[in-house]
């Protein structure tokens, strides 16, 4: 798992005053499991783009950690 993803999720969670998470899997759902809304996902996108140079929403909506990883790995 790309560490940029977990780091970025925790930066977003920190901004919301939520507790950090320690692990995610490819099937972890961004909205249902992590409680991220569309604004949180926008912030997550810019944080991941800053670290990896990849805009994860450029090719359509992503819903799970696995889909983010796939975008980053190309």
């Amino acid at each position: 798992m790309n560490s940029a993803i977990l780091e970025s999720i925790n930066e977003v969670k920190e901004g919301k005053g939520d507790e950090a998470i320690t692990s995610v899997s490819n099937t972890t759902h961004l909205r249902d499991d992590l409680g991220l809304d569309s604004f949180d996902l926008a912030e997550l996108t810019v944080r991941i783009e800053e670290k990896t140079g990849v805009d994860i929403f450029e090719n359509g909506v992503v819903e799970t950690i696995g889909e983010i990883a796939k975008q980053i790995d190309g």
Binding site: A42, E43, T45, V46, R47, E49
Partner: peptide
């Protein structure tokens, strides 16, 4: 806006 939300 992306810059603004990145920098809060």
């Amino acid at each position: 806006i992306r810059n603004m939300i990145y920098n809060r």
